[in-house]
């Protein structure tokens, strides 16, 4: 998809770095390739620098030693992110990827939690997903039911929540991404990503920022052979999350 032009091209999207964050430069690259301007935000700062949206990237913040995301949620900047994400009127779009998703659950912006993968190993593979909800701030450039392939790489990727919460997520259409064909890590109901009720906060375990450039994403590894009857991945399926938020900002 071509980067959006016009007003959204001036959008400034913050990418937060915590100590131990790994995919911040990748997330910034994805923002840039989508046509917006990435703004580096430091966890210890007290200002969001007037960004239009925020990405909490993947990694092992504070080593994930206590629980993934448990220490980062107390960062000074997270207070600002939480407040802005829940602001009435025009809440700030926030995307949490992998460790960022884990931070969002620890910060209670999203329900549930992540525990170790069922096989107890770190797992890196190209993962097929079904887009369940194509109306959130971060998924409006997809169509519901569409299948995409982006990398999955984590140690604590098994999404869990109680039955009531799961039913509620399903009923409210807040399951945004679901693992397709096989559940890689034992996540409840094969959930790969969810949103808050307003749809401005989205968290997912797989990494869209690693599927934004042909040749440097899922099609470079050949791991697509695991998908049986799936054509070769385009390698750039993740870019639409970033163009989606630009579209959201344009419309808003």
């Amino acid at each position: 998809m071509a980067p959006l032009e016009g007003d959204a091209a001036g959008a400034r999207i913050g990418v937060v770095t915590f100590p131990g964050t790994l995919d911040d430069r990748d997330a910034a690259r994805a923002v840039r390739l989508a046509g917006a301007t990435p703004v580096n935000l430091w966890h210890g700062d007290g200002s969001l620098q007037d960004v239009d949206a925020v990405v909490l990237p993947g990694g092992f913040s504070y080593g994930d030693y206590l629980r993934a995301g448990a220490i980062s949620r107390f960062a000074p900047l997270m207070g600002k992110v939480t407040a802005a994400a829940e602001a009435p009127g025009s809440p700030l779009p926030v995307l949490g990827i992998c460790n960022g998703f884990q931070v969002l659950t620890e910060a209670h912006l999203l329900p549930g939690s992540m525990v170790k993968n069922e096989n107890l190993h770190f797992m890196c593979r190209d993962q097929k997903l079904t887009v369940e909800n194509a109306s959130t701030s971060w998924t409006n450039q997809f169509t519901a039911g569409e299948q995409i392939v982006i990398p999955l790489k984590n140690q604590d990727g098994q999404f869990i929540a109680d039955e009531h919460t799961l039913d509620q997520l399903e009923g409210d259409g807040r399951v945004v991404f679901r693992y397709a064909e096989s559940n890689p890590n034992g996540s409840r109901r094969s959930i790969a990503g969810i949103s808050n009720a307003a749809g401005n906060v989205v968290g997912l375990m797989p990494h869209p920022e690693h599927a934004v450039e042909p040749g440097f994403g899922p099609d470079s590894s050949g791991a697509d052979r695991r998908f049986g009857d799936t054509p070769l991945a385009s390698g750039t399926d993740g870019l639409s999350l970033f163009t989606s938020v630009l579209n959201t900002l344009l419309v808003a």
Binding site: Y62, G63, Y65, L66, I71, F74
Partner: peptide, 24 residues
């Protein structure tokens, strides 16, 4: 104990200064 060390570093940041060491 890297785990304990990371937690010990985090405690003062949330205003809990009463601990000198954490072992997990």
């Amino acid at each position: 104990d890297p785990q304990g060390k990371a937690i010990a570093g985090a405690l003062p940041r949330i205003g809990l200064n009463g601990f000198s060491e954490v072992r997990q």
